[in-house]
Simulated scan of single mutants.
Amino acid sequence: MKVAIVTGASSGIGRSAAIEIAKRGNGVVLTYGNNRQGGLETAAAIERQGGTAVALPLDVGESASFADFRDTVTDVLRDTWHRDTFDYLVNNAGFSHTSLIEDTTEETFDRLVRVLLKGPYFLTQKLLPLMTDGGAVVNTSSNSTASAGLEPGYSAYASMKGGLDVLTRYMAKEFSTRGIRVNAVAPGATRTRIGDDAFTRFPEVVPALAARTALGRVGEPEDIGAVIATLLSDESRWVTAQNIEVSGGYNL
Rank of each mutant, 00 (worst) to 15 (best):
T213I: 10
R181M: 10
G195I: 10
G162W: 12
L209K: 08
G195M: 03
V166N: 10
S159L: 13
D165G: 12
R201Q: 08
R193W: 06
A229E: 01
G216W: 05
M171E: 03
A208W: 05
T140S: 11
V185G: 02
T145K: 08
F199P: 00
G153S: 13
V185F: 07
P221H: 09
E174T: 15
V185Q: 05
A186C: 05
E222P: 06
S141A: 13
R237E: 14
V239C: 15
T168Y: 06
V239Q: 14
G162Y: 13
Y170T: 13
G134A: 01
A136H: 07
W238C: 08
E204L: 00
I180W: 07
S159T: 13
G162Q: 09
N143P: 01
W238E: 12
V182D: 02
I194C: 02
T190G: 15
A158C: 04
T192R: 06
G149H: 14
G135L: 04
A229V: 10
T200K: 14
S144R: 06
Y170C: 11
E222L: 09
I180E: 10
G188K: 06
R178K: 14
S141R: 02
S236F: 07
R169H: 00
A136P: 01
E235H: 06
A186W: 07
G225P: 01
T177H: 06
I194W: 11
R217S: 10
G219L: 03
G134I: 07
R237C: 12
G162D: 00
R181S: 00
D196A: 05
D133A: 14
T140E: 06
E151Q: 14
W238Q: 11
L232A: 12
G135D: 11
V185H: 01
T140Q: 10
K161H: 06
F175I: 02
G188S: 07
W238R: 03
V137Y: 00
D223Y: 03
D133R: 09
R217V: 02
A214W: 05
E220S: 11
A184P: 00
D223A: 03
A211R: 06
G163Y: 12
A214F: 15
P203H: 01
T240C: 03
S233N: 04
P207Q: 04
L164Q: 00
N139L: 11
T190C: 12
A158K: 01
L150I: 13
T213Y: 04
M171S: 03
R217F: 03
S155D: 07
A148P: 08
P207N: 01
T200N: 03
R237A: 15
I224D: 09
Y154H: 09
V166L: 12
